[in-house]
Amino acid sequence: MNREEILVKISDLYHSQFVHPFPYEDTDQIKADFDREFASLEDEGLNSNFNDYCTLIIITSGYVIKDEAANIPKRQIDLLREGFFQRFPQYSIIATSLKNYPNFHIEYQNHERLRKLLLDYLFSE
């Protein structure tokens, strides 16, 4: 896929897929289902961490869509290189159960797809 095709896919995802509300019901259920595991975490903030992950991707998309990719801060690109479970490994306990939480799973998949497209775009010639 060339750079222009990647940009079209980024724009399509950005404008059509990210109109869903935050999956609070699913994150509440995840926390209930993994209550014991989450209790042992020092810094359990699934909602805020997932929101941070999603926001980074959406903000980066805005730079790319507005043809301002050169202005993306290096730290932002460094964070973009990591998927949710790499950036927040404390949640790896839920990785194999995502299909049990359909709204969260859809949001995760859409953001992950967009994250990978952004990386393809930023590092293509």
Score class of each variant (00 low, 15 high):
54 C>L: 00
113 R>W: 11
66 K>F: 03
51 N>W: 04
57 I>M: 10
45 G>P: 00
117 L>T: 04
117 L>N: 07
67 D>A: 15
6 I>N: 07
97 S>H: 12
116 K>H: 13
112 E>V: 06
9 K>I: 09
74 K>N: 10
40 S>V: 13
60 T>G: 06
86 Q>L: 15
42 E>K: 03
30 I>D: 05
81 R>S: 09
37 E>L: 09
114 L>M: 07
47 N>C: 06
121 Y>W: 08
116 K>I: 14
24 Y>S: 14
75 R>N: 10
42 E>T: 04
45 G>K: 14
43 D>V: 02
90 Q>I: 15
87 R>N: 08
109 Q>N: 09
9 K>D: 12
119 L>Y: 00
35 D>R: 14
49 N>R: 15
15 H>Y: 09
111 H>K: 13
98 L>N: 09
6 I>Y: 09
123 F>K: 05
30 I>N: 05
123 F>M: 01
87 R>G: 07
89 P>T: 02
51 N>R: 10
46 L>Y: 12
121 Y>D: 03
41 L>K: 01
47 N>A: 11
54 C>E: 00
110 N>R: 11
73 P>N: 13
58 I>Q: 03
18 F>I: 04
116 K>F: 08
87 R>E: 08
115 R>D: 02
73 P>F: 15
14 Y>D: 09
12 D>V: 11
26 D>E: 02
4 E>W: 08
39 A>G: 01
3 R>I: 14
13 L>D: 10
100 N>R: 10
106 I>Q: 11
60 T>A: 11
102 P>K: 06
23 P>T: 01
6 I>D: 02
13 L>N: 14
25 E>F: 00
95 A>C: 04
39 A>C: 04
38 F>I: 12
99 K>V: 05
59 I>W: 09
104 F>H: 02
50 F>C: 06
12 D>G: 09
95 A>T: 07
92 S>Y: 12
34 F>V: 09
118 L>Q: 05
111 H>A: 04
121 Y>P: 04
59 I>Q: 12
96 T>A: 13
52 D>H: 05
82 E>Q: 13
108 Y>T: 07
44 E>T: 00
113 R>A: 10
103 N>V: 05
107 E>P: 01
65 I>V: 14
66 K>S: 12
77 I>S: 01
56 L>P: 03
87 R>H: 06
76 Q>C: 06
16 S>A: 03
61 S>G: 10
105 H>W: 00
94 I>C: 05
13 L>P: 05
18 F>N: 05
75 R>C: 07
40 S>A: 10
107 E>Y: 02
4 E>P: 08
36 R>K: 12
20 H>W: 01
72 I>H: 10
24 Y>A: 11
87 R>W: 02
70 A>W: 13
27 T>E: 08
43 D>L: 00
88 F>M: 04
3 R>S: 14
2 N>D: 13
72 I>Y: 09
38 F>D: 06
86 Q>T: 15
111 H>M: 06
73 P>Q: 15
116 K>C: 13
63 Y>C: 06
67 D>L: 15
19 V>D: 15
43 D>T: 01
99 K>C: 03
82 E>W: 01
39 A>R: 12
14 Y>N: 12
102 P>H: 07
8 V>D: 13
24 Y>P: 07
119 L>N: 07
78 D>Y: 05
88 F>V: 06
119 L>S: 04
